[in-house]
Amino acid sequence: MMDLVAHVLIVVGALFMVLAGVGVVRFGDVYSRMHAAAKGPALGVVLVGAGAALSIRTVQATVVVILVIVLQLIGGPVGTHLLGRSVYRRIRPPLMGADELGPVVDAEESD
């Protein structure tokens, strides 16, 4: 039974990663692509890692899987934030709402 649950988690996690890749290719603006590149793989890695830990069932493998998941959950959002900030500073793509970052970036550039 545990093997079945592990295999389902791995397949669902892989599907999330594939859908995130499709989202990166298909979405129109930069911010939507960044969202797809950050959220989908993070959930996919968590599900694949949980499935791998359930499938292998050793302490060492579980510790490695937990470390991989934690690093993914830390590194993904940080990288996406840096990418978004860099895109905003260089390109200034049109926004759909209020531009709350504009005055801060303008003040930093004038210093």
Rank of each mutant, 00 (worst) to 15 (best):
M2H: 10
D3H: 10
D3N: 11
L4R: 11
V5M: 04
V5S: 04
A6Y: 04
H7I: 10
V8E: 01
V8H: 00
L9W: 01
L9G: 01
L9A: 01
V11P: 01
A14M: 12
V18H: 02
L19T: 02
A20S: 06
G21Y: 03
G21R: 06
V22S: 06
V22L: 15
G23D: 11
V25L: 10
V25S: 03
V25I: 10
G28R: 15
G28W: 15
D29A: 11
V30Q: 05
Y31N: 12
S32F: 14
S32N: 12
R33I: 01
R33G: 00
M34Y: 06
M34V: 13
M34H: 04
H35Q: 14
H35F: 13
A36L: 11
A36P: 07
A36H: 04
A37R: 06
A37G: 09
A38H: 07
K39G: 01
G40T: 05
G40K: 01
G40M: 07
A42C: 05
A42D: 03
G44M: 01
V45M: 03
V45G: 01
L47H: 02
V48E: 00
V48T: 03
V48D: 01
A50I: 14
A52Y: 01
A53K: 02
A53C: 08
I56K: 09
I56V: 15
R57C: 06
R57N: 13
T58Q: 07
Q60K: 12
Q60V: 12
Q60H: 14
T62A: 13
V64A: 14
V65Q: 01
V65S: 00
I66D: 02
I66Q: 01
V70M: 07
L71D: 06
Q72D: 10
Q72E: 13
L73P: 10
I74S: 09
P77L: 05
P77D: 00
V78N: 10
G79H: 05
T80V: 08
H81V: 02
L83I: 13
L83A: 12
L83E: 01
G84F: 05
G84Y: 05
G84C: 09
R85H: 10
V87R: 00
Y88S: 05
R89K: 09
R90S: 09
I91H: 03
I91L: 04
I91Q: 07
R92G: 09
P93G: 07
P93Q: 06
P94W: 12
L95C: 06
M96D: 14
M96P: 08
M96N: 15
G97S: 15
G97R: 15
D99R: 05
D99F: 08
D99N: 10
D99A: 11
D99E: 02
E100A: 09
L101F: 14
G102W: 08
G102Q: 14
G102N: 08
G102M: 11
P103Q: 06
P103C: 05
V104K: 13
V104S: 11
V105N: 02
V105A: 04
A107T: 13
A107F: 09
E108A: 08
E109F: 09
E109Q: 12
E109L: 13
E109K: 06
